[in-house]
Design a protein around this nucleic acid. Structure first.
Lengths: 143, 143
DNA sequence: GCCGTATGCGTCTGACCAGTTACACCAATT
DNA sequence: AATTGGTGTAACTGGTCAGACGCATACGGC
C-alpha cells in the first residue's frame, strides 16, 4: 500500500514547477533538488508533458513549465494517471462479483482518492517561503 | 497504490478458515482453491498463527483454524500487519514537516484504513453459500 | 543569412533491488 | 511410516535508477 516513487516524483516535479511559475525549469534543477538521477526524472517530465500538465521546450534555454494554473491540478488527478493498476487491486479473477473483499478494497481506494481530490498543487506549495530554500531555489544551499 | 499479494492471500486465507470454522483446514486446500503455490502460502499462514489469528497444528491430520471469531477480525487490522510501510509512504527525508504532500497522503491513507475498519472477516464471508462452490468446498467445481 | 557549437529534452540499454513464486528438504504429530 | 506445517535457497518479474547517446533549438562568428 505504498505509492510508487514515480508518483512521488511526478507530484514533486509539479510542485517545483509551480514554485517557479511561469518561469522555465530545467530537469537537472529538479533532479538536484531531490537528489535523484536526471535520466530517471526525464521520463516523468516527458509523460507529464504528454498528459498536458507541463509545456516542454527543447533546445538551448529550454526547460518546462506548468501548462495549467496550480489551483486547477488536483493531487488525485496525478495519482490516477501514474498509478495505473488502480481499478483492479487485489485480484484478477472472474469471481470478483462474489468476493466482497474486492468490493471493500475498492471502497477504501475511493476514499483514498476522495481525500486527495480536495488537494491541489497550489495547496502543496502554499508554504512557498519555507519550501524554496529546501529546494535550493533562490539562495544557494551551501552559501 | 496496490496492496501486495501477500495481504491478498492473508485475507483470503482467513476467509477460507472462516467458512470452515471451526473445522481444521490444510494449506494445500487453500492453495488449490486460489490456484497458487503452497509454499508461498505456508509463510503467510505461519505469520497469521504467530499474530494470533490462526491456531496451527502440525503433524498428521493437522491444519489450522481461526483463533478468534470472524466478527472480531477487521480487515484493516490485517492490512496494517501485512503492509509494513504504512507510516512513511512517499518520502523518507527529514523535510517532511514542510512538505504538505506527505501530510495529504497520510490523510488519504487514514481514510483508506477507516473504510476497511468497518469490515470484518465475517462480512467478507456473509455470502457463504455463493463462496463455497467457488472455493471447491463442498461440491467439486467440475462435477 | 548560414553554419558550427552549446545546451536543453528525449530515447535506448542495462544493472540493481524488492516482491513473488517454486523447489527441495526439515520438523513434528499421529 | 505417513502426513501435515515449517524453513532455506534459488529463479523469475516488475519497478527503480544510472549512463550513453540521439534529437531539437538557440546563440554567436562569419
Amino acid at each position: 500500500m505504498r505509492l510508487t516513487s514515480y508518483t512521488n516524483y511526478a507530484l514533486r516535479t509539479l510542485m517545483y514547477a509551480a514554485l517557479a511559475h511561469p518561469r522555465l525549469v530545467r530537469v537537472q534543477d529538479v533532479a538536484d533538488a531531490y537528489g535523484i538521477s536526471r535520466t530517471h526524472l526525464v521520463k516523468c517530465v516527458h509523460h507529464l508533458g504528454m498528459w498536458g500538465y507541463l509545456i516542454n521546450q527543447r533546445g538551448r534555454n529550454g526547460g518546462f513549465r506548468l501548462a495549467r494554473e496550480p489551483e486547477e491540478i488536483s493531487v488525485a488527478e496525478i495519482v490516477r494517471r501514474t498509478e495505473e493498476g488502480f481499478g483492479s487491486p487485489s485480484c484478477g479473477d472472474a469471481d470478483t462479483s462474489v468476493l466482497r473483499l474486492v468490493d471493500a478494497v475498492q471502497r477504501a481506494q475511493a476514499a483514498f482518492l476522495a481525500v486527495l481530490e480536495r488537494y491541489t498543487i497550489a495547496d502543496m506549495t502554499e508554504n512557498a517561503d519555507a519550501l524554496r530554500p529546501i529546494l535550493g531555489f533562490d539562495i544557494g544551499h551551501a552559501a
